[in-house]
Design a protein around this nucleic acid. Structure first.
Lengths: 228, 228
DNA sequence: ACGGATCCATCATTGGATCCAG
DNA sequence: CTGGATCCAATGATGGATCCGT
């Protein structure tokens, strides 16, 4: 059955198929899955921070070339790996998407990228407390925000983007937002993107991304486990 | 004196210095100059279409990292290689810059990239009728458009960009324009960029670049030769 | 001859995230 | 713990132009 994963893979036809594939990854190590897919391992694991996420996407039949839309476009499902330790604790925040700093005032929650990305998410746990060669996939669960979660996300999004829209981008830091935060997202601390200050004058500011706090995804993980 | 060209080179301090360096290239072959600069030759010459131009820029002390502004920013001078044959005939049109298709209606000649690029140009002839290993640099001359030339360029630019601005981009071909033409400029015929049709609806259209007709640059070449 | 098609290198941006100092 | 910094691969643009079929 291992051979069934090798080579080009059709996209999953529905969520059940997607979940079957995700569960089939459970227990397998990262090097195992890479070999099944014929993907070379990075020379220095730990530097290739996105490798496991992209490996998972390929392993599930995702469209690795699509730069717009969800990872599984026809299902409307986003894939996110969730780094956990042996006791099931979430180790890291979860990157959602980059923030549009310039033009923030023209955006609203209902059409926001954060809302679209989080409308339907397949979380795939990965043991992040082991050495790279032993890292293995764990449980998988599908999630959509319930009313209370969406309200929290929306409140944070509107607070953060509202601040950006009135030129406060430089005053925002990662402490703001209960479940959703804005953090630097770029090649390094010198990265800059177009923004506007409180007077509306163009400035160059650090690019930012939206992240889910680990406290929040930990709650999703515990909730999902009840049904596992 | 050949050794003086090796290694990192200061930008030329003025046009005279730039011209001295350009004349010093005259008669040298492309492989010679590449070796002087320690630049490896492309494996398949003829495929690396921009190689000679970039080699020339380095040989003259240009800023190869600057993506905005003229090649010799402090002098306001653009470098263009001019492919000629043994009898001094110009073999190719000269690429000027890419055309801004979306938003064309907000542009005008006085601030256009075409006008800025052509305000001051160092043309460096290169024998293009020889095999790659024997191609050699020839005469160099500085040019700025005179009143009549600028009027021609402006008329063509306004005709072409006017057509783009009213959504006629798909109807424009390389036959239009007396001295300046619009031609495809992209990876291949499938390349597409944002444009707007006559109704103002967004469409995807082939990216275009401005080119000087060889008839025009041939005239500059002959004019310059009178003074050589 | 020349209009349309193409080629390469480099830089910038985006999407995938984890690293690490205090 | 966690806020700020960073890393890699792949894609897209841009700048340098010449190639080539009709």
């Amino acid at each position: 059955m291992v051979g069934a994963m090798v080579g080009a893979m059709e996209p999953p036809v529905d969520e059940h198929e997607l979940m079957r594939r995700a569960r089939a990854l459970g227990g397998r190590t990262v090097p195992e899955v890479a070999q099944m897919l014929g993907v070379p391992l990075p020379r220095r694991p730990g530097r290739a921070k996105g490798f496991v996420g992209q490996l998972a996407e390929r392993a599930l039949g995702g469209a690795c070339d699509s730069r717009v839309g969800p990872d599984f476009a026809e299902l409307g499902v986003e894939l996110k790996t969730l780094p956990v330790d042996g006791r099931g604790r979430v180790r890291e925040s979860t990157f959602v998407c980059t923030a549009q700093i310039a033009g923030a005032s023209e955006l609203d929650w209902s059409t926001s990228r954060v809302r679209r990305k989080l409308a339907r998410v397949l979380f795939l746990a990965i043991r992040a407390d082991l050495p790279p060669a032993e890292r293995r996939f764990g449980a998988a669960f599908l999630w959509s925000p319930d009313a209370a979660q969406e309200a929290q996300l929306r409140a944070d999004w509107e607070d953060l983007m509202g601040a950006v829209a009135i030129g406060q981008v430089e005053a925002i830091d990662a402490r703001r937002g209960e479940v959703l935060q804005l953090r630097p997202k770029g090649a390094n601390a010198a990265a800059r993107t177009l923004a506007f200050d409180a007077e509306g004058a163009p400035i160059l500011s650090a690019p930012k991304g939206f992240y889910l706090r680990s406290r929040f995804t930990a709650g999703l993980w515990r909730g999902a486990s009840l049904w596992a």
